[in-house]
Amino acid sequence: MQNFTKRFNRYKYPYMFIAPALLLLLTFSIIPIIIALVISFTNIDLAGLANYSNIEAVGFDNFMNVFKDPVFLKSLYNTMFYVIIGVPLVVMLAMGAALLLNYGTGWLFKTFRVVYYMPSITNIVAVAVVWGYLYNSHYGLFNHMLSWFGIPAQQWLNDPTLAKLSLILLAVWKSIGLNMIIFLAALQGIPRSYYEAAEIDGASKWKKLIYITVPLLSFATFFVTITTLIGWIQFFEEPLVMTKGGPLNSTMSMALFIYNNGFQLSNFGYAAAGSFVLFFIIIVVTILQFAVKRKDVEY
């Protein structure tokens, strides 16, 4: 016992310092994942919440049913649609913006860093309000701009396919900034001597870009791709605030499906099962990414 007190006193401070943060993480991150796993095998809903004795174990029913649910299957398709179009766009445009901003050193280039970054820190509801107005089919700016070229007005948020693309446009606009900063930090880490050596060998600008800059950005590209991919698989806030998943579930993403089942329909167990399907997909995609990366050439 004395030994224990002695040990405790010795390590008292570090334990005291980590205790608040660790307790909060335990309560709101670690324990919830266990709860989620348990309830995904039950039929917990509002009745179950009111009285725990109403909760029944249902085995794998939730997982079976979720794959028979046409809304879920649609959300799976839509999420793939978002990821396949959105992620490459974000990575390319963020890298392009970083190269452009890294080109000059004047005040103009410094100022425009802020301009390109601004959408990333803008509140999603404010974004939805402003873009909703831009996309408005009667009074919106976008339809007005189309009319300059004689293109008829579009139903930006009401046409099933166009609505998905409209959300992608908004989300790409919002996610360029943060990723651009990561590329900028990486660009500034490339030693100037590499370019000088290439210049002595008479390499053109284009060749320097293709053979020095892009390969040396490979780690940043990997990082941006994987975080963007994980983020877009969880595509959520844009459809929530812009379209609520409509029209006819055509913008419903998996994450929004989970949210709707959990908080609109109070099917907590069913939603938890859906969230594990999403988690599983994220894990598989991440592992695949790392496997592909390993085959890459190291510089």
Binding site: A21, S29, I30, P32, F268, A272
Partner: peptide, 26 residues
């Protein structure tokens, strides 16, 4: 210390959608 730090890092990988509902229940 090492194990606890890895535990902290591991929480970064849990997607928000998984914890959203159980945290609400808690």
């Amino acid at each position: 210390s090492k194990k606890l730090f890895y535990l902290v890092l591991a929480t970064m990988m849990i997607p928000g959608q998984v914890t959203m509902i159980p945290v609400y229940l808690l």
